[in-house]
């Protein structure tokens, strides 16, 4: 499944990041590497972007951008 499909409160493990370019590199360098736990928190009032907790930090990603992250539950 992809990261945007995690429901609030659910935790997944990162499998891979598809896509290319600098956004992928940035996610990786923030520690979103294979095996890292990531928990969906919530969303902005308009339902997008979505918020996640990973490695003690809270990151907000647009729904469309969250789709590039493959996770396993």
């Amino acid at each position: 499944m992809t990261l945007d499909q995690l429901e609030p409160g659910q935790t997944g493990r990162i499998a891979s990041i598809t896509g290319a370019g600098s956004f992928r590199r940035r996610l990786l360098e923030l520690g979103l590497v294979e095996g890292t736990e990531i928990t969906r928190k919530g969303a902005a009032p308009l339902g997008d972007p979505l918020t996640y907790r990973v490695r003690g930090a809270v990151l907000a990603l647009r729904r469309s951008d969250a789709r590039v992250v493959e996770v396993v539950r």
Partner: peptide
């Protein structure tokens, strides 16, 4: 935009 992805850290 060469890249439109947005990432905000809620510090």
């Amino acid at each position: 935009a060469t890249e439109s992805a947005e990432l905000i850290e809620l510090v």
